[in-house]
Simulated scan of single mutants.
Amino acid sequence: MYNDLKDKVALVTGGSSGIGKAIAERFAAEGMKVAINYHSGSEAAEEMVKAIKEQGGEAIAIKADTTKEEEFLAMFKETIDTFGALHVMVNNAGIQKDIVSHEMTTEEFDQVMNVNLRGTFIGCREAIKQFMKQKYKGNIINVSSVHEIIPWPHYAQYCASKGGVKLLTQSLAMEYARVQIRVNNIAPGSVDTPINAANFDTEEKKKGAEDFVPMGYVAEPAEMANIAAFLASKESKYITGQTIVSDGGLSLYPSHRNWEYDELAAEFTDEI
């Protein structure tokens, strides 16, 4: 779909499952060379690389803990050594934990902040260093959450980390706008990924989650990957410092949504 992405190099953190996996696969389908980062689940990452190569693409899998600076730097070096450049950086690695706030330890707080915010900062910093070295109008795509907007009981550390990603995105976008380095952010709502599996593991829970979303369904990771491909391409070249909230209307005060069309909704189609 985006011809300008062909042969460009992308590094995707947390790329072996969920939204990261969908983004890496979409980038490969666009003809990009993809470095797929994983922390655990090497088998899934290697299977992705094998599938991409079988389809004529180029990909590598790199194990790294994004909270450990030395491992992040080694991952960057391997990406550059393998593909010779970097054009798109996707900071997707993230975790969430259900913890009552007054019982949360500082270690538990730091763990989520380190993965979600500190790791994203390191990824942004190293990507910008490489773009400045290449004198290339590079592209950074961060992945936050609708909970950069919506408070979430028991997830104070998660919300704080994702709110930080939003302001980090805006600050870096402003700082490097003059040299055309773009920094944007995707804020997903309810998405059917392993990190959310416990929320959808029964029909009752799944229906409850779907009913809470004004558009009436939980998204697939590929729907977030579509946004990433757009942001990576020149089709979005005048967009920087922005968060694209992809949440089916979840941030629009869902308890106030219009219920009168529930029965009618099944009759609507996107077919012409």
Rank of each mutant, 00 (worst) to 15 (best):
Gly84Phe: 04
Glu78Lys: 15
Thr82Tyr: 10
Gly56Trp: 12
Ala85Asp: 00
Glu58His: 12
Ala64Met: 07
Gly57Cys: 07
Lys77Gln: 06
Lys63Gln: 11
Thr79Tyr: 03
Ile80Lys: 10
Ile62Asp: 00
Glu69Leu: 15
Met75Leu: 11
Glu69Tyr: 15
Thr67Asp: 07
Gly57Leu: 10
Leu73Gly: 06
Gly84Trp: 03
Ala74Cys: 04
Asp65Ala: 13
Phe72Arg: 10
Ala64Ser: 13
Phe72Ile: 15
Leu86Gly: 04
Ala61Asp: 01
Ile60Leu: 06
Leu73Phe: 02
Ala64Gly: 13
Lys77Met: 02
Lys63Cys: 05
Phe76Ile: 12
Asp81Lys: 08
Gly84Lys: 04
Leu86Lys: 07
Ile60Met: 06
Gly56Thr: 08
Ile80Thr: 10
Thr67Val: 12
Ile80Trp: 06
Thr67His: 11
Phe83Ser: 10
Glu78His: 10
Ala61His: 00
Thr82Lys: 13
Glu69Lys: 14
Phe76Tyr: 09
Glu71Arg: 02
Glu78Gln: 15
Leu73Pro: 05
Lys68Gln: 11
Glu70Lys: 14
Ala85His: 02
Asp81Trp: 03
Ala64Phe: 03
Asp65Asn: 15
Ala61Cys: 06
Ile62Tyr: 02
Ile62His: 01
Thr82Glu: 06
Ala59Ser: 12
Glu69Ala: 15
Ala85Thr: 05
Gly84Leu: 05
Glu78Tyr: 02
Ala64Glu: 11
Gly84Thr: 02
Leu86Tyr: 00
Lys63Ile: 01
Ala85Arg: 09
Ala59Cys: 10
Leu73Arg: 11
Glu70Phe: 13
His87Trp: 02
Ile60Gln: 00
Glu58Gly: 09
Asp81Asn: 10
Ala59Pro: 06
Phe76Glu: 01
Glu71Val: 09
Gly56His: 11
Ile62Pro: 03
Ala61Leu: 03
Phe72Ala: 14
Gly56Phe: 11
Ile80Asn: 07
Glu58Gln: 15
Ala59Lys: 07
Ala85Cys: 08
His87Ser: 08
Leu86Trp: 01
Glu70Tyr: 14
Glu69Met: 15
Glu78Val: 09
Gly57Ala: 07
Glu70Trp: 09
Met75Lys: 01
Ala64Arg: 02
Gly84Gln: 03
Glu58Ser: 14
Glu71Thr: 07
Ala64Asn: 10
Met75Phe: 02
His87Tyr: 06
Glu70Met: 12
Ala61Thr: 04
His87Lys: 08
Ile60Tyr: 02
Ile60Cys: 04
Glu69Asn: 13
Glu78Gly: 13
His87Thr: 10
Asp65Tyr: 15
Asp81Cys: 03
Thr66Val: 15
